[in-house]
Each structure stands twice: as structure tokens, then as C-alpha cells.
């Protein structure tokens, strides 16, 4: 099987009935994606599969054959040491949008997906986007703050880029 993970083609020789989560963590060493329940209830294992947000514990790896997957490790650009954090990642850090951080990786992927199609999300939009991401430490408010802050930063930099072109 071949899966494109965070833009890189990876050959996977795992049993096809293993979950995508298992393959990401155990075979590809991408442990940023977490296992909170193994039953699709908590969203800690959220990744993007061909542009759709899924619980990777509920996807058999065979279903991902030939697909493109984005995990939390694929949100920043540039790679270390010249890594550039995505505005969401900066905002999550600044706003105390997480405490223990175990839900954060999945939460970030859900929010990253939201910002692909909505550059000015309302509180409702954000809460709907993270409706499947369980967090036991917060009450999700600091996530709303961070996503709106990140969206504003992206709008500003997009506007700046357009002005430059003009």
C-alpha cells in the first residue's frame, strides 16, 4: 500500500486490517496523532484523509491506500530547524488553548480543516468544527479565541500579499 503522508509518499506493508492510527504511530513513527479511546468517541486521532477530517482509529489502513493524509506533523512548514509554525499553532500556544495537550493534535487538524474553507469563522462555526474533539481540561473557549486570532492573522497576511502584488 502507498499513502501520501504530509506530502511524502510512504510505502506501508502493514496488515490491511490495522487502523490508519496504528500505522501512523507504530509503522511511520508519527506519534503526534493520539489514541484516546480507540472507538471514535474522542477525536484525539483526527487526521485529514483526502481533504476530509476523520478519526484515524476508525479507518482501516487499506481504506487509505492511495490516499493523501495530513497529520499534526504536517501543519507547520519548513521543517526543523527552520520550521515555521502555522498561525493556529502559534495562537494555540499563546491563548492557553490546551492544558495537557493530548487532544491538541487532533483539535488542530479539525481547526486547520475549518480554516481551509472559512477565513472568518464564528464561535458557532468553530464549536461545530471541534464538536468531535473531546477536551477534558478546558471548556473549549480558549480554542475559539485561538482559531479566531489565527484566522485574523491569515486574513491580514493574505491582504498584505495581495497589496504587494497590486
Amino acid at each position: 500500500m502507498r499513502i501520501t503522508v504530509n506530502g511524502r509518499q510512504r510505502d506501508v506493508s502493514s496488515e490491511p486490517v490495522k487502523t490508519l492510527l496504528h500505522v501512523l504511530r507504530e509503522d511511520l513513527g508519527l506519534t503526534g496523532t493520539k489514541d484516546g479511546c480507540s472507538s471514535g468517541d474522542c477525536g484525539a486521532c483526527t487526521v485529514m484523509l483526502d481533504g476530509r477530517v476523520v478519526n484515524s482509529c476508525m479507518v482501516m489502513v487499506a481504506q487509505a491506500d492511495g490516499a493523501s493524509v495530513v497529520t499534526v506533523e504536517g501543519i507547520a512548514t519548513g521543517g526543523q530547524p527552520a520550521e515555521v509554525l502555522h498561525p493556529l499553532q502559534k495562537a494555540f500556544s499563546q491563548c492557553w488553548s490546551f492544558q495537557c495537550g493530548f487532544c491538541t493534535q487532533g483539535m488542530l487538524v479539525s481547526c486547520y480543516d475549518l480554516l481551509q474553507t472559512n477565513d472568518n469563522p464564528s464561535r458557532e462555526d468553530i464549536l461545530t468544527a471541534i464538536a468531535g474533539n473531546f477536551c477534558r481540561c478546558t471548556g473549549y473557549q480558549a480554542v475559539v479565541t485561538a482559531v479566531q486570532q489565527a484566522a485574523a492573522e491569515i486574513r491580514t497576511s493574505d491582504a498584505g500579499a495581495q497589496n504587494e502584488r497590486a
Partner: peptide, 21 residues
């Protein structure tokens, strides 16, 4: 002052290692 956690960057990039990792 609002201060980010010393582990914040590790957490938001998925590098932070918990026991299962």
C-alpha cells in the same frame, strides 16, 4: 503576564512525547 507553556511548541507540533509515544 499570560505566559505560554514551556512545552507549547512540542505540543502543537506533535513532538511532545507522552508515555504511549
Amino acid at each position: 503576564r499570560w505566559t505560554s507553556s514551556p512545552g507549547a511548541t512540542d505540543i502543537v507540533t506533535g513532538r511532545a512525547r507522552y508515555c504511549p509515544d
